[in-house]
Nucleic acid binder design. Sequence first.
DNA 1: AATAAGGACAACCGCTCTCTA
DNA 2: TTAGAGAGCGGTTGTCCTTAT
Length: 348
Amino acid sequence: MGHHSCCNKQKVKRGLWSPEEDEKLINYISNYGHGCWSSVPKLAGLQRCGKSCRLRWINYLRPDLKRGSFSLQEAALIIELHGILGNKWAQIAKHLPGRTDNEVKNFWNSSIKKKLISHDVPTIATYPDMHYNGNNEEDFFSLNANPNWILSSQQDQLYLPTPTPMLQGFDHGDLKLEQTNYGANSVQFPPPMAPPSNSSSYDPLWSLGYQPHGQFDPNQEHQNFSTSGATQHYSGDKLIGPSISAPHYDDEDPLTSMIPKPCDEIISGNCCGMFCSCASQDHDPLARLPYFPAGCNYPHDTQVPNNHMEYMDAIMSSSSSYSSVSSLSPLSSGQFVTNSNLHSSWET
DNA sequence: AATAAGGACAACCGCTCTCTA
DNA sequence: TTAGAGAGCGGTTGTCCTTAT
């Protein structure tokens, strides 16, 4: 029980942050960066512990945060990623630019989870045909939603169930394939690259909050403050994604074309999934899930098959923060809805 | 109009991981 | 090698707001 060491050194305030406290923290970090979080409260003149400052900055004060309701694409992506990653909120949030792990977690617990249960939607957690091989070393699952998948509980690993001569012992660029004891080819994706040295974009995932002096001004109009009680929120629309290097997927490539595409079951998209139509070759370790590589500006053209839209609509329609997509975007079979349609209809 | 119930979300707690001396 | 500090993460709680009665 007890508080953190930094909290024991001084009397600290707890609970909701006041606008004055937010202003102090924003001013300090925008000028000096956070550096060591434990020293931030003292230097910023706050009666808070460093951990509280860090949480407040990362979850609510970062200038790149996207506020407001989750879009249909985001909800679909969260469901899909949760089926793969489980409660790895931080990893899921990495695929949702401008969203925090806390936000994703709250959204899941307050909205999606209930809907999935009530609609008996077959996520990986509820798949009746999901197999556990019973091996205590490697927790394998096969997912009937995509019979090409065997998912391991070990993160970021996808296993192709059928040994393919073309893949055995193959080492192709960023993809490293290994034979396992289970007759499956393990596709191990490389860790993210270091941030690009020439990037002038503010990227909180790299710097964890540091921004050079002068780049962030809380009074700038694109960083709109709205006040809800004692809590201020940003609703800025400038989104800059992390510059992650991941395998290049090429449908013409006999290797990469075989790699599972989790989002394909829900949403069709281009190079890096449903959001992005750019030609970037930076991709996500989870293959085709949107990761917003450098040079990709959100939002992009999005094409979502109508049947999936109805599917999501059914899940989410009872949510108080959700306005029916189908009711606002009349679609017939075979039609597609664009990203702008979705945002105008859902983020209200 | 008052109050209870439920939902949404901000914040905290405690554990684990990583780094460094 | 190890201990301590800092940071990150997921689970949980607390608070405020909305809705129903």
